[in-house]
Design a protein around this nucleic acid. Structure first.
Lengths: 224, 224
DNA sequence: CGACTCTTTGAACATGTTCAACAAGCGTGG
DNA sequence: CCACGCTTGTTGAACATGTTCAAAGAGTCG
């Protein structure tokens, strides 16, 4: 069986900011780059998993669809994050760009080769998988047991940790994306955000894609 | 960073029946065995992850608790399944025996040692992780987007695949366990089962811990 | 400015929860 | 072997959270 980081909740995979241990390593010799525009498909469930990816800039969502169109976004991936490593020959999830994005494209065979020695990339991959698993566990708790408001609080805190510019989070994704990630509807997401704003915990300036976390402590309390 | 299979949805880890590729390998030289009685704790979130386990007989649940007691069972583990391999030094989940169980206890250091060479156990561990991730993804879809009846249908079909004695599933776990796994309440689990029974899709003989799958096709249709 | 999309808000509704009671199994001990 | 008590599971009714359906505001881009 081949290796593979599938990409569950797993974003902060190799994000240097978050993984000091696995940090300042230059990109392998020749790594292809590809640019994707917003909503462009990167791969679909069932595609041969010939490559895996590292986000250079932008944001990516990985998700699954039910036959009737219901969607579950398992994770968002930001610069530094690795996604698309699969266990089998096929991608088990679909992936597409949330916004215009640049990705470093790695051949799967590179990984397999590197996985042979206890090399750095191998460790990275395992590292990624572990993080993916951890995130998936957190997310299962969220989806199975948390209320709408708690989910939003969790989500905002998580994003802040990964994207933070000191309490100001710029959401690259739509309310629908958030809903499909948190197991809610757009309307519920919108309402919860409004409630948090009215409570003075967050601020939603003008264009609504920015969130100012006014009171992280309150968010943490809400997060249960 | 140390390796680690955390145990997300990941039950059929190394179950020989399901992993023909990684199959007929004898247990390492000296492997300790421990017996646990029903509801006995195996480890708790935060414990040092000195060991990982393989179920010899019985059933185990791994779960997390929220501060107020809400529980999310991420997976059940049956004979052949490995669980308890963690990324860090600590267990990220709690585990306890669902019924009286016998476990093979492996020292974490064994795994670390074996993980150095591209040996069989290393592959097993990675294999486990991948499966864990796959299950976690499935479970996120279930928790985020499926209705109560769909969840029950999924659950029964999944169990049947792992425990099947030709359409008859013996549930080792209580309704509460099922509820905490599927993100529902006991009452909803009970009602859904009753509905399936009234629809003639399943049968719940006397002591209610046995489920006869009368119409798997119907279950699959329900599963969405 | 106008068309479009995205987000918010409102109101009715539904699914699943909560609270409460009852039934059924199981084990213990008389 | 039955009675008792406890735990587990089922059922009912009221309730709540989040959904669905509908419409109106805002932002964006041509």
């Amino acid at each position: 069986m081949q290796l593979a980081l599938a990409s569950a909740g797993l974003a902060p995979a190799l994000n240097p900011r978050l993984v000091p241990a696995a940090m300042p390593r230059p990109e392998p010799r020749t790594v292809a780059r590809r640019t994707f525009e917003a909503d462009e498909e990167i791969y679909t469930e069932g595609d041969r998993a010939a490559h895996f990816y590292r986000v250079v800039s932008g944001a990516v969502r990985t998700y699954r669809l039910l036959s009737d169109g219901r969607r579950q976004i398992d994770g968002f991936h930001f610069p530094g994050d690795i996604f698309g490593i699969e266990a089998g020959d096929e991608h088990r999830l679909s992936a597409d760009a949330v916004t215009g994005s640049v990705l470093a494209v790695h051949r799967r065979s590179d990984r397999d080769a590197l996985a042979q020695d206890a090399g750095a990339l191998a460790r990275d991959v395992v590292d990624s998988m572990m993080r993916a698993l951890g995130r998936a566990q957190d997310h299962m708790m969220l989806l199975g047991r948390k209320s709408a408001k708690e989910r939003i609080a969790s989500f905002l805190l998580g994003l802040a940790e990964r994207l933070d510019a000191a309490g100001v989070v710029d959401l690259p994704m739509s309310r629908i994306d958030i809903a499909d990630h948190l197991g809610l509807t757009v309307e519920s997401v919108s309402r919860s955000l409004t409630q948090l704003e009215r409570a003075g915990i967050i601020e939603l300036p003008a264009h609504r894609r920015t969130v100012v976390l006014r009171d992280k402590a309150a968010l943490r309390r809400l997060d249960a």
